[in-house]
Design a protein around this nucleic acid. Structure first.
Lengths: 263, 263
DNA sequence: TTTTAATGTGTCAATACGACACATTAACTT
DNA sequence: AAGTTAATGTGTCGTATTGACACATTAAAA
């Protein structure tokens, strides 16, 4: 039975994890002018969760985060950075009745010894390190697994009910993104290879949460000298088609290494 | 025997700690125009360590950090912020032969079962969350304990050999301090209640690692409107005594809450 | 040819910054 | 009391940045 083998593997894995340690990823993706977060909906749980997991005892935490993201998006080489570690006593699964219920339900078809192990595992106090990831939304191939029934981009302006302290995690990640905007590869990671200047501007606006002046924005960005303009143009509307830009990797890395900041 | 009772307590405590989780504090203190870090020298270990410890399973991590600092400095109400979590596979005690030796020596007078427990404990993989603290060096009453033979302020320009990845921890904390200088209560936390403007400038200079123009610095600082000038003057040298300043808490918090930045 | 929106620039006032300069002040010396 | 010394307050200048607006040009579609 598929169910049975999943349980076996899952429980076997539990023994290989560092107990009490977990990680969660706040994955930002940008689509249709809106900043989104990647969220999972677990079966039998009436709330959404961030993609996350546990730490294999022989694995680096950053690699574990990359693995988690790879499973969900099919992408490697994702921009990823640790931004905070959550350790509150009050963040345990056992304070959330719905989650507890869900665990019980997942267990219902399992063997008793497995149930016990699982229950014990989820009633530990967890110290969770949170990572922030930036990915190009349309490149991601969102994938569910045995535990999750949905895996979707959710606009940050329209967040659903979230498990544990995951809402706080997203809030803090947004704050981090906003403060660090000049030091993170926002454009490079969140936009497709080619994009228009107004795409870029809208992205920045959705992060800093205010309107920016077009002229000034354009001037500032182009002055950085990291953009390549392409001859190919967009088409469709009855007006001059906007130019497409891409980021010149070499110049971009030169800029970053010199510590020159955006905006 | 004092030794015996320490061992008993220590081992009893081990059972109350969250396994695999630790925390370390990079404590900055400012003295004689130099930025210092608080370091401990353990008995039988040929390297220094940051003040740190383990997490009691019923305690918040931030509180644990405060406790650690209180034991070392006698101070409460210390400015404290988490800045990174270190989790590398290669940071374990067991890769450091000297440390391993030291553990063995500490154990030498202990009961066998205690030895075993302790050995096992210290050979775990530890995930350590690092905190940055700012304190007024001269207010601190530095205190050693059973394990440590020295507890001292060490200039950041003259760091000794450090245990594990503690040198990296300090390096990263310095970087954090430098980047966040405009958002942290530098002056308020690191200087005595009353200080001269050149004290403040030297402090800033020791953090940003470059000379600042006196006139411009003074103008900028005073324009913030958070300083109270005192009539009392310093004395000693054959010149005009510098004014003493203190930080007006109310205006200071107003400034912070408005998100206005220094420099 | 007209309509429409994208694009590239220009201007202007306000502000910030770094580098210097200079006059004033007060504490200690002689 | 006058001299020496360093602290202090302030001014200036050139450069750079910012935000707000304006305007002319361009090209795609109607």
């Amino acid at each position: 039975m598929k169910n049975k083998s999943f349980a076996d593997n899952f429980v076997k894995d539990l023994l290989r994890f560092v107990p009490g340690v977990s990680l969660d990823c706040v994955v930002f993706g940008y689509r249709d002018g809106i900043l989104n977060v990647l969220l999972l909906k677990h079966r039998n749980v009436d709330a959404w969760t961030l993609p996350g997991g546990f730490l294999l005892s022989d694995m680096e935490m950053q690699d574990a985060a990359h693995d988690i993201l790879y499973k969900r998006t099919g992408l490697q080489d994702i921009f990823l950075t640790q931004y905070h570690t959550f350790s509150s006593l009050h963040r345990g699964w056992d304070v959330n009745e719905q989650s507890r219920l869900a665990i019980a339900q997942v267990q219902s078809t399992w063997e008793v010894k497995h149930k016990e192990l699982l229950t014990k595992w989820f009633h530990q106090r967890f110290i969770s390190t949170a990572y922030l990831a930036l990915i190009e939304a349309d490149k991601a191939l969102l994938t569910t697994d045995y535990l999750s029934e949905r895996c979707e981009w959710i606009p940050i302006t329209d967040l659903p009910n979230l498990v544990l302290d995951h809402a706080q995690m997203i809030q803090m990640a947004l704050e981090y993104l906003k403060v660090q905007i000049n030091y993170l590869p926002i454009g490079k990671s969140l936009l497709p290879d080619k994009f228009t200047m107004s795409d870029l501007q809208t992205l920045y606006e959705s992060i800093v949460q205010r309107k920016l002046d077009r002229g000034n924005f354009q001037r500032k960005m182009l002055k950085l000298g990291i953009f390549k303009r392409h001859e190919k143009l967009m088409t469709g509307a009855s007006n001059k088609a906007p130019f497409l830009y891409s980021i010149d990797d070499q110049r971009y890395h030169l800029l970053l290494s010199e510590g020159i900041r955006f905006r």
